[in-house]
Structures are given as C-alpha cells and as structure tokens.
Amino acid sequence: METFTQITSQIIPLLVNNIDTDQIIPARYLKAIDKNSVAEGLFADWRYLPDGSPNPEFVLNNQLYTGAQILLAGNNFGSGSSREHAPWALTGCGIRCVISTGFADIFNNNALKNGLLPLTITETQFIQLLTKLQEDPFTKVTINLKDQTVLIDGEVEFSFEINAFAKKCLLSGIDQLDYILSFEEEIIQFEHQQV
C-alpha cells in the first residue's frame, strides 16, 4: 500500500451532506474486474452532462483545482454500499485525503486500506476551514499525519484524531493481510478449538 506521511494541496470543496457511494461511483461503473478502470466513474452523474461532456458547473471540472489532492465534503461521507470502488475511484483521480465531520464505517475502512486518509474533524474545525477557503478559495493546506496536524501557511490550524493502528499502517504502508497472516499459528489453533 502507498504510504501517507504529508501532503500539501488545495482543497476541493464539495459541501454536500450524506454523499453516498452511489454518488461517488454509480453502479454501472462496477462491472470492471480491475481497480484501475473505475476512476472515470468518479461522481459520474455530477461530473458529466447527459451527453457525456464535462459539466462545467461541477467543482471537480474546475481547471483551477487540477492536481488538488484534498476533498472537503459534508457530513456522513461514503454511506451506502460497501463498494471499495469508491476509494479506488477517488485515489484514481489523485485524491489522497477526504475531510469531513463524519464518515460511514465501511467507507472509512476501505479508504484506509488504499492509502486514502479519511480525516474526521469537528464542526468547529469544519467552519474554520470554510472561513479560510472563503478568504482564499485556492489556499494550500498541509496535512501532516505524523503530528496529526492541519497547517495553513506553515502554521498549525488544528490537530486531528486518528486511530493509532490506522495511523501506523498509513505511515509505514503496512499491509493488513500480512499482519493477519503473521498469526497463522493462532488461527490454526483457533480452528482446532472450534471443531
């Protein structure tokens, strides 16, 4: 898995609550059997017009955000289906961090396994970020995972919480399956007891 230590980028604001995985990637893009070809489906119903051309009003199509790696979304991001295609589509389009006041459980788990940081902030911090973006929509923000801080212009804006194990995995790119398989002995023992 790709490691995550620190990124500096503009923030793409997508201030809608309850963005579900059907919006992140509609079901018709789930027929792929690899991970790489799902990126074109990211937010497809919002990103493209009915004739297939880019919707100029959708924020991701704004040239000024080209290359941005951080998405700021409304509350309860990633609810709905368990499709891991959602984080694949996001990372496939260069997003490395989604900031929200809350994430649905399965999305949160899926993101962490793909080097995508689901960054949960408080409502106050959310408003703080919004205010900064109002002052300068293209302001660059740094996310430092080791220190668990969000910085603007080199100054710490606030710090955030993250589960210690998830942090360790992201920082050093630990593969969770390798971790599980390191307990092979214990698994065998457990299976014996279970009959």
């Binding site: 368990s82 459980d105 788990n109 969770q176 398989l181 698994i187």
Partner: peptide, 22 residues
Amino acid sequence: FGIGTSEVEHVLASQCLLQNKP
C-alpha cells in the same frame, strides 16, 4: 456485516478480519 474488497481478500486468504469492536 458488509466488507470492502480488500477485506474480501483478507477473509479468502486467512478466514479472518481485522476489526475494532463496535
């Protein structure tokens, strides 16, 4: 409960999952 595809791989390979207790 529902899981993502990485977790599907974990269970296929090990019959186990890494989970925090809900």
